[in-house]
Design a protein around this nucleic acid. Structure first.
Lengths: 156, 156
DNA sequence: TTGTGTGGTTGCATCATAAAACCAAATGGC
DNA sequence: GCCATTTGGTTTTATGATGCAACCACACAA
């Protein structure tokens, strides 16, 4: 790409999230991190990606506040990468991606795993969009509104 | 990239969905399509992207069964791109991305729009993950299980 | 101090991307 | 029917991100 088209200044929240998550590896790294991986070598071995790319992605994710480096953990002097709350907040995105594959993939028999409720062992329910009062919403039931101007914290 | 690392054969449903949606523009095109855009020029004007890239992306999305070309619509002999059910099925993904930005963006005041319930004009509720029986689930309440072998349709 | 494994960084070739120019068909004025 | 304009792309060209492999630095062990 000639300039990678950063969406950082874009006013659309979808574009903004893609700016942080929208490349080929970031969400997979986050997926593994949610699964408990922390070490460079773990990510590299599990994802099978080039180390320089992994290095660049980890740095970008740290810059975006999605991962943070933890100095130790098990005594070794190496570094670890752990999810921040912002990073853990991507979980619904991953679930949505997963459910979309499960529902629409042309060859679902190739999908190896299903996400289940740990207690019952049953698949989790499809994500659904609801109104504040709990009514189920379809896309057509929603619309976009300009964000209301937020008053300043002091002297506003 | 040297080969773009297609995740098409990967068994992880997240990787599989990223294979179709995981580039910089696809989800934004889908976002506009959900918003009602259909024509090449509309997408190009709204997204401000290079026409060759748009062309390639539209073709890829059609190949993936996310968009389909409709021959007409308003009499003109041009083509239109409309979402398939699979394409409309990405809506929760977009909502998840949007909500993640709304919740964690460092500069939320730059976000221009909020997604609201059309009837009440109130923001939609955060997506939540629930068990089959309706219990609210956190990431830690879930786990991955191997997909059960599906019996064949005939003589299975 | 030599050896090994972990955690990266540095070349280098390649391919996708992006901007702009170019092109063809459809439309519109007359 | 003829010419200009719009729409919907493709081609051309420069760039730079990607991926592989090699290399390097540090920790730890003997």
């Amino acid at each position: 790409m000639v300039k990678r088209t950063s969406f950082e200044g874009d006013s659309c929240p979808i574009a903004r999230s893609l700016d942080a998550l929208g490349d080929w590896w970031s969400l997979l790294i986050i997926r593994e991190a949610l699964f408990g991986l922390r070490r460079f070598g773990e990510f590299q071995g599990k994802l099978g990606m080039a180390k320089n790319i992994l290095s660049a992605r980890l740095r970008a994710l740290v810059d975006h506040g999605i991962l943070e480096t933890a100095p130790a953990s098990d005594g070794s002097a190496y570094q670890e990468y752990v999810l921040t709350p912002k990073g853990r907040g991507t979980f619904p995105i991953l679930v949505a991606l997963r459910q979309w594959s499960e529902e629409f993939d042309d060859t679902p028999e190739e999908i190896a795993t299903i996400l289940v409720d740990r207690e019952k062992g049953r698949p989790v329910k499809k994500l659904e969009m609801r109104a504040e009062d709990g009514r189920l919403l379809s896309p057509a039931d929603t619309t976009l509104k300009p964000r209301p101007a937020r008053r300043r914290r002091s002297a506003g």
